[in-house]
Design a protein around this nucleic acid. Structure first.
Lengths: 315, 315
DNA sequence: GTCCCGGATGTGATCGCTAACATCGAGAGT
DNA sequence: ACTCTCGATGTTAGCGATCACATCCGGGAC
């Protein structure tokens, strides 16, 4: 019977067909539970996510689903709401369920402490790497992303480039500042003023735009640490009488559709390729499950999505 | 042993403690797989979602997680990307895995065809009800939400109220128009002009605001079909020289933080209570699993979140 | 006619746990 | 003192698959 349904043993085609027909007739569906008990594989992985807006975790989940083969392997999704107790709880629950592996999707790119509870299965950290270098992590190459954004601005004729970004404490913020400086330096340019550290919000973007216009009226481009900031900057600049992109070009980060396309003008943005992060994490996890762990930090490139906000200067 | 760890059989406390201690020492974790095989319950449910931004599904997932008791019962998440083939595939996969039940989270409120494949387990539809009335669905009371929004506007002194909303084809759009008309009628008022049907985007909101200002310059409030539209309307009105909320009050729908709080001024919005929808769906599913199905359409109320955009008229 | 061979089919042990049943032992009732 | 009972502990079948092995059968070779 198992032979007929899985096509494993050797038996006549006709027999196989008959068994399958009867099975279908009876609505019989073999139990994956019983198979798991014997083989030790559940074809199920845990996906631990820590952000409940899902702005980062969801694309990761989708990528992972792709890699896990649409239902071949399914994901048990656990939202920890950033609570270590809950995380611990979920990990135990996953272990009890004998998942084949675990993906941990972060919310910030700062390294996070590895999963507690000594999971006896492979773990892959996605987006936020584990602070233990012996773990397997998949991260976005944010520095290259920032560099690409700035190079794009330079290529389209901008020279006086400022950087308005999020809170100093975030690893992403520092990395993006480094990338920005690097790209400018390579082109023989300097950042206009210091980086403007603030929040991730539009309000901060508007405020920064006003201040920036006062202190550096000659700025002709702003690279922003997020789409929300960029959108605030766009509105702020417009209200100060600067035209985007004619007077000032803008590039954001996240390529978050609602913000990037609602912005006036639509926003050029660095896409963090989170789906690809998820896909890579899923693929690495599968490989780790079958052939053993592949520790290290795996990097996925960003992708610059060009829209109207960074059109070449009219002059 | 099973008795000691689950505290089920009757045995001396000391024995129980000793067994537990040794088990912990050895890092022994009992296998839920084996238990499921025997008891027939996996303490796992399927969550089928159809929107991959997750703007609707994710809150539903969180609510469901609450109801399912943080790890007591976990959810296998499947994103169908609105593809019936993939949905079918996932359902089969869930059945093979012997999930205890399935939650189907929609993306639009229009009734959807019930799940194919005759799942032998309870199914609860969340947000989008099943078109089969014999199924169990949890939906938001959008009409009451619209009514509440309009009543709020009336209570704060508005009389000339217009409605800018999404595409005519959507059930939500029709329901919200009905709620709006109903509330106005009860107060002895009439909608200013016809409802403005369009898209869900900011662009449409901006366009509609300009047109509305031209055709009905005396409008003192706009109830919008979504936060994105409302935000567009806010920008459009401002550019036509109307002040929000002094001249025109605004209310949106979705209470989607980034949009509602990024808006100038911050947006009063009807919260669809999706988390509560998820919680109810989870609770109903558990009840259905243990005591049999509770068919019918269960309704969850909306919640009006008041922000600056609907402050009473200054005059 | 007998033997052997290979493909087709049947059989049973096993995965890890639970629940029902068997057993055991000590204190109480007669 | 003997049984009776009840609470504590030990034993075992079986959940539903898989896989290795046993069996079976027909045909070809000798």
């Amino acid at each position: 019977m198992s032979k007929a349904l899985n096509g494993r043993g050797q038996l006549r085609d006709e027999t196989r067909a008959r068994v399958q027909a009867v099975a279908h007739e009876l609505g019989f569906v073999p139990s994956a539970v019983a198979a798991s008990l014997l083989t030790g594989r559940t074809y199920t992985v845990g996906l631990i996510m820590t952000d409940h807006h899902g702005r980062f975790s969801l694309p990761v989940l989708h990528g992972a689903e792709d890699a896990l083969g649409w239902g071949e392997t399914l994901a048990l999704v656990c939202d920890t709401r950033d609570d270590p107790i809950r995380e611990q709880h979920y990990v135990r629950s996953l272990i009890r369920r004998r998942v084949d592996g675990i993906i941990v999707a972060g919310r910030r790119t700062d390294p996070r402490p590895p999963l507690g509870g000594r999971p006896p299965v492979p773990v892959v950290y996605a987006f936020a790497r584990s602070s233990d270098a012996a773990d397997c992590s998949v991260v976005v190459n944010e520095e290259a992303g920032a560099r690409e954004a700035v190079e794009h601005l330079i290529r389209t004729g901008r020279r006086r480039i400022a950087h308005v970004t999020g809170p100093r404490g975030h690893a992403s913020v520092r990395t993006r500042v480094d990338g920005t400086r690097h790209a400018l330096h390579e082109a023989g340019l300097e950042l206009v003023g210091e980086p403007w550290y603030g929040g991730w919000s539009e309000v901060w973007g508007r405020f920064a735009a006003a201040a920036l216009t006062r202190s550096h009226p000659d700025v002709d481009a702003v690279f922003c640490g997020s789409d929300a900031i960029a959108r605030g900057v766009a509105d702020g600049l417009r209200e100060c009488g600067r035209r985007v992109p004619d007077d000032v070009a803008l590039v954001g980060v996240d390529n978050w559709q609602p913000t990037a396309e609602g912005c006036r003008p639509p926003l050029t943005s660095v896409d963090l390729n989170l789906q690809e992060v998820g896909r890579t994490a899923g693929a690495l996890l599968l490989r780790a499950i079958e052939y053993g762990a592949a520790p290290g930090i795996h990097t996925v490139p960003c992708r610059l999505v060009v829209r109207a906000s960074s059109a070449p200067a009219s002059g």
